[in-house]
Each structure stands twice: as structure tokens, then as C-alpha cells.
Design a protein around this nucleic acid. Structure first.
Lengths: 135, 135
DNA sequence: ATAAGGTTTCCAGCCGCTGGAAGGTCAAGG
DNA sequence: CCTTGACCTTCCAGCGGCTGGAAACCTTAT
């Protein structure tokens, strides 16, 4: 299989697959013409990577997870720790975004959005406090 | 005021303030010795930027918002559009993270996390489907 | 022979900083 | 006057995870 084939099958862009080889996540063979030659196991690894990335794991997490995946003597606790850490990072990020969302949604709801210049959004950014709910 | 003073007052790192000058968000004067010399209006702009960035606006959004802030003849609709677009981007991101979170939390809850190698998390990443809830 | 579609490598850029090196400046203390 | 230390300057490189583009090579079909 050439890179285009595994790209189609794995759903990953060819560019990304070359990048994954660059950073050592996969090691496809080479054909006589210099083309990368992917076997089923390469495709399997790429699919694994695609799913791990889709869950938001970092590349370094993926490297660790792949190593554990190949390691018959792993302890599931090792995997779980990585996943739980990641889960906490996601929760932190969600909380942060929800905080932003709340403030922003409030400001947006206070803004007339018409042709006049008065704008509680800009007032808030300028003053550090929302005027739209006062007095 | 030197850069360290405005850094303390605005809460932004000096590095970031220099960067903001580089990309044209602020234009502090220079003292005879070459040091940046910040006035109240610079500090005000930095505080504005800090709050806009804390709400997750991109640098380009900040540039637009600052321009509108200075522009007496703005229409609040222009501001509101920027804020609403950003709100939608935030909502998309939250939704994406919550999707990840749901899958991940489920997998984590299925993983024993002990010294045995069996791990539904790796099984899912390897196979593209969770085995932990079947049969 | 040529054209179209793969593939290769390499280099640069995205965002928003952040770190570090190498040097200039200033105020306080000996 | 000299040193110390805190501050300031510029410049260059790197983070993560790709992504775009250029220039060249390979394969297949006409």
C-alpha cells in the first residue's frame, strides 16, 4: 500500500502520516522506488493513532499508549493513569471555556447590536466590569 | 512607566507586551535610553487586551475590537457580530470536548486500573469500538 | 512523447507566546 | 570609582501538530 491508500483507509492526511513517520510513531518500509510501503500493521497503528488523537490525547500520550498497546506485560493502571490525567485536562478546559462562554453570552445579550455606538461589550473590555446590569 | 511596571499593573508578562508592540497592538514611546515608556493610555489598552484575551478572543479579534473601541462612529452591531462568532466557536469547542469527555470517561470507568494487562481503553483505541459493554 | 496523477524531500508558516543569550542602563552600597 | 544586581534592549529559536507549497521523481495511460 502506498501512502494515498492508507490515507484513504485511515482517514488521516498523507501529510500527517509522513509527519508521524518523522517523529517516529510509525516505521513503514520502503519500496525499491523509494515510496513508503505500508503493511496492515502500519495501517492498524495509524488507525489507533487517529482514534487516540480524536479523543484529544497529545502526541506524547499517543506514543506512550502505543508502547503500552504493544507491551504484553503492561499494567492497565498505567493506561488508566494516562487517560485520567487527560480527562482532567479536558475537564479543566471545559470549565475554562464555560467560564468564558457565560461572560461572553451575557455581554452579547446586553448589546443592542444596532447602528448606535453604545456597546456594553466594549465597555466591559475597557473598564473591567460590566455596566450593562447596573442601576 | 517602564515595561516592568505595566507588566505588574496589567498582569501581562513583559514578553507578551513586547510581542504586542511587535505586532502593532500598542505603540509605546521610547525614553532617551531606549527603554519603552508607557503612558496611561498604553496601560489602558493593555488591560483591554488582557481582558479580551481572557475571554478567548484571537489576536485578530482583539485588533478589530480595539479599533472599534477607539472609533466613536462604530455601530454596536459590528462588535456584537465579532462576539457572537466567537461565542459560536466556543460552543463548538465545548461540544467537541464534551464528546471526548463522554467517551473517555466511559472507557476510564471500564478500566480496572490494576496490575493486569487487560484494558478496555487500549482495546477501544485498537479496534475502534468499546468492548467493555458488550455481552 | 506527453500528460496526469501519484510520490519524494525540504523549507516555511500557522497561533500566541515563551525561553534564552548577549549586551546596555541605572540606582544603591562599599 | 567600582561592583553588584535588577532592570531593560534585541534577536533567534522553539513549543504542538500539523499544513502549504515548491521542485523533482515515478507510474500509467494515451
Amino acid at each position: 500500500m502506498n501512502i494515498g491508500d492508507v490515507a484513504r483507509l485511515s482517514g488521516l492526511p498523507a501529510k500527517t502520516i509522513r509527519y508521524y513517520e518523522d517523529i517516529g510513531l510509525i516505521r513503514p518500509k520502503r519500496s525499491a522506488n523509494g515510496y513508503r510501503s505500508f503493511g496492515d500493521s502500519d495501517l492498524h497503528r495509524l488507525a489507533f493513532l487517529g482514534r487516540a488523537r480524536a479523543l484529544g490525547f497529545t502526541i506524547e500520550d499517543c506514543r506512550s499508549l502505543m508502547a503500552l498497546y504493544q507491551d504484553e506485560s503492561r499494567e492497565s493502571a498505567q493506561v488508566k493513569r494516562i487517560a485520567e490525567d487527560h480527562l482532567h485536562r479536558i475537564d479543566d478546559k471545559i470549565a475554562q471555556l464555560q467560564g468564558m462562554r457565560a461572560t461572553l453570552a451575557h455581554l452579547v445579550s446586553c448589546c443592542a447590536g444596532d447602528d448606535r455606538p453604545d456597546c456594553p461589550i466594549l465597555e466591559d473590555l475597557g473598564a473591567g466590569e460590566a455596566d450593562c446590569c447596573k442601576g
